[in-house]
Design a protein around this nucleic acid. Structure first.
Lengths: 271, 271
DNA sequence: CGCACGCCTTCCGTCGCACGGAAAGGGAGT
DNA sequence: ACTCCCTTTCCGTGCGACGGAAGGCGTGCG
């Protein structure tokens, strides 16, 4: 048999590996291929990570580039486009962030500590903003990242004011991060009651060794919408001095937030 | 013939209004229906603004919600989902923003003025971050917004270091914003040369009445990647005092940016 | 109170276009 | 020169996207 079949018009129909994924979901899975550790990807990397054939990925990525959701860099690699960033600015976390930024700055200046602003998203705390004083650079836990609810100050504040169903879910199997992490649901529930009574939470090394933090709720028209926290090294003297500025900032931010419309983000996880 | 045709299986085939838009582009046009003045929309509003039939919009929006790119609020309206915000954090402006934030804070503190950080995007300046001191709240020109190139300090700095083709495009028909806006391309070109020589730009009321601003370039491995500016009311005394801190911040930020990989965003507008 | 209007949702027959295997065209490393 | 990987184009197939229609719901008006 000659190795040069000059006329192979008998094209085998491509095996439809498309199980039930819609065209749109494929395109979105291409976007999902990007994450914090993979900010730029080659075409084949996108295809691999998204589970798509290369030819399909090529077409979809081309469309996403046309819509400026992806950007092709001069070297041929792809990255998330500025358009996505702009669209993201319309999402709820941004309104909160904008309203909070001046207060966060004040808090950083007066305490000299790193501050966090987080909201409840499903069974985790979504970090909306993190501000450090100019020399305290710790790139851990950036905006967009998550913190556990049961062993961080922001998390406990959010959990203390969360619907019971969510609370039960979060306390089903509390993960251990350090030797000081409290993993007994009953103990945590008592802590939450105390937090509701006292109006603030503090944790010491429950999430990371050597770190202490305190958090207070930010309240909107419909209850607690966010939590504001101050971090300090365990060795820092006069840590408790941060509580007063923290309370002031939380109150000021709550007043600002009253003008905002911050619904959603607290609904059921998914339908 | 009775008015109750119990069996109307003769379904008229729907008139395919699908001209050439791909399935993906339709879904993305639904996202595009959201903008700064329309952060929440009803389903039919999305359909109207995206030019889609309601039934189609319903299906696409459902998929986008499944991917968490949209979020359905309890009241039934839709808003951009937190997922988009998170994805946007992977886009190039965010790396720059993260690197710049401490320096911007320093600059705000030492000058007491509002500061802007902007990058070149097509024939406009994209505002990456805007920071005001805690009491100077002006919600105009937020991050994600655009500034013209020919009549703002950041714009002139970016334009002064832009490729000639882009410069020509930007100066084709300079828009007039105030009585002080310079619209003569030749005059602007002379200004740009002076800016290249002096290393900084200043404008007075060219974009907005009563506002003065100065800007300096932020340089990366491959040239100017952004512009940093300080705004002040025209009536403020000792405005020029801001120049020295501005230079310090721009230099410090440039040093930080050297470690970053900030390509793209300077390529041709679209393919 | 009845009607009209607008919004949301579901259904389903048709056919346009999304699909992906194959092969060709680079470019870099060995 | 050979191999490996990435990218890009081509094109026949068949399946899932498409959208008109109808029904349910809430609201405002006469």
């Amino acid at each position: 048999m000659p190795s040069v079949p000059s006329v192979p018009p008998a094209r085998r129909p491509p095996i439809r590996t498309a199980p039930g994924r819609s065209a749109t979901s494929r395109a979105l899975s291409a976007l999902d291929a990007f994450d914090d550790g993979h900010r730029t990807l080659t075409l084949s990397a996108i295809a691999r990570r998204a589970g798509l054939p290369v030819a399909t990925a090529h077409r979809l990525v081309g469309e996403l580039c046309g819509a400026r959701l992806l950007h092709r860099r001069p070297d041929g690699r792809y990255e998330v486009g500025a358009r996505v960033w702009q669209l993201g600015l319309l999402a709820p976390p941004t309104s909160l962030r904008e309203a909070a930024l001046p207060h966060l700055q004040d808090l950083v200046i007066t305490t000299g500590r790193t501050v966090h602003l987080a909201v409840l998203e499903g069974p985790r705390a979504l970090i909306v903003e993190r501000l450090a004083s100019s020399r305290t650079q710790s790139t851990r836990h950036s905006p967009g990242g998550y913190l556990p609810l049961h062993c961080t100050a922001v998390g406990k504040v959010l959990l203390a004011h969360a619907p019971p169903a969510l609370c039960a879910e979060a306390l089903r199997a509390p993960a251990r991060y350090t030797d000081w992490t409290v993993t007994d649901p009953a103990v945590i529930r008592r802590q939450l009651a105390a937090i509701r009574a006292a109006g603030f939470a503090q944790t010491s090394q429950e999430h990371r060794r050597g770190t202490w933090s305190a958090a207070m709720p930010v309240t909107g028209p419909s209850g607690v919408v966010a939590a504001l926290s101050v971090l300090a090294p365990l060795t820092a003297p006069r840590r408790a001095d941060a509580l007063s500025p923290l309370a002031a900032a939380a109150a000021a931010l709550s007043a600002t937030v009253l003008d905002l419309d911050l619904d959603g983000m607290t609904g059921e996880p998914a339908s």
